[in-house]
């Protein structure tokens, strides 16, 4: 493609009530309601919804959507490899790794001499469970902004995992109950624990079992995982039990021996947020880019124009403008604040 200096992507890519829409290719990206054609960046439920007619995504994301939504998940899947091009009319589309969760992708859209990249959710640091983000030059970069404030600087993963292992050493008689999002965070925490040498069984709340099994079937080794419920809870002293965040404070969490309540999320950076959630051991582990990763990515993509969505747009827009980038907030409807 020959890229043109006067590219005006706002003429053919716009936000609608359903989400971001590419008119010449007649497709939506992560639409919030059912669409005839949808390009899906990753499997989190605020991006991947059930019921579209045709879906273009990665094979891993398709597998995740099938696991979550079953037969109703989509009319038909077109699974693309990273870097493989598809054409819709005179629009070329390909997916590149976004480093967010297994199967996550940026969407690269080329039309009328203009290259647009929709980041989806992403992070820049290494993740043993998924392919790393690949930056690419573009004319317009549409970025997420979940942690787009300079108070959010995620520390090194290994240090956070070490905090959990240290607590286990200090409190060997207490169960360590770790709140994790079911898709991505759960598997990443397990993989990081394995890298740090924790080879004991890791115990799972029922809601995490299926996606962990799916990751394993897609080649991500997670070691010895076991379900825990009922009477077996009593035997969890000194063990690591993972559960969805919502289970930390509900009835399910009763019956564990003197649990230490931990939570793995980028929001744990703000101590009063952790305290509000009753978290004793905050683990700052995020699948989203922190402030430094966001500004580094804006620099790496080299785009003269930036649209910011999905989070704290104002700060990133302000920063980008101060660096001479033409930046705007793209207030997409239908996105909720989901976990970090």
């Amino acid at each position: 493609m020959t890229r043109r200096a006067d590219a005006a992507p706002e003429r053919w890519l716009r936000k609608t009530g359903r989400g971001l829409y590419c008119a010449p290719g007649d497709f939506y990206i992560d639409p919030s309601r059912t669409a005839a054609r949808a390009v899906i960046t990753h499997g989190h439920s605020d991006h991947a919804r059930a019921g579209h007619d045709a879906v273009l995504t990665t094979a891993a994301t398709a597998a995740i959507m099938r696991a979550r939504y079953g037969a109703e998940s989509a009319g038909a899947y077109d699974c693309a490899l990273y870097g493989e091009t598809r054409r819709f009319g005179d629009v070329a589309v390909r997916l590149l790794p976004a480093g967010h969760v297994l199967g996550s992708a940026q969407v690269v859209i080329e039309h009328a001499g203009c290259r647009v990249v929709v980041s989806g959710d992403y992070k820049r640091r290494r993740d043993p469970t998924c392919a790393g983000f690949e930056p690419i030059d573009c004319d317009l970069f549409i970025t997420e902004a979940t942690f787009a404030l300079p108070v959010f600087r995620h520390p090194d993963d290994r240090g956070e995992i070490a905090k959990l292992l240290h607590s286990l050493a200090v409190f060997p008689d207490r169960c360590h109950l770790v709140g994790v999002y079911a898709l991505g965070k759960a598997q990443r925490v397990i993989a990081l624990l394995r890298e740090s040498g924790w080879d004991r069984p890791i115990y799972l709340h029922g809601a995490l079992i299926e996606l962990c099994a799916l990751y394993e079937s897609l080649g991500v080794a997670l070691g010895d995982l076991r379900p825990v419920s009922g009477e077996r809870k009593k035997a969890m002293a000194g063990e690591i039990v993972l559960c969805p965040p919502g289970a930390l404070n509900d009835r399910w969490s009763r019956g564990f021996p003197d649990p230490v309540t931990a939570m793995a999320s980028g929001w744990m950076r703000v101590r009063q947020r952790a305290r509000m959630g009753g978290i004793e051991l905050p683990l700052i582990l995020s699948d989203h880019a922190d402030w430094d990763e966001l500004i580094r990515t804006i620099h790496d993509m080299g785009a003269p124009r930036l649209w910011v969505t999905h989070g704290r747009e104002e700060a990133l827009v302000h920063y980008a403008r101060s660096k001479g980038v033409e930046a705007e907030a793209l207030s997409l409807v239908g996105f909720e604040e989901e976990g970090g």
Partner: peptide, 18 residues
């Protein structure tokens, strides 16, 4: 950027510390 951060975090000491 400081004011936006303060508005989000809500506590001056915490915002400045971060």
């Amino acid at each position: 950027l400081f004011r936006l951060s303060y508005d989000y975090v809500g506590d001056l000491a915490e915002t400045v510390s971060l």
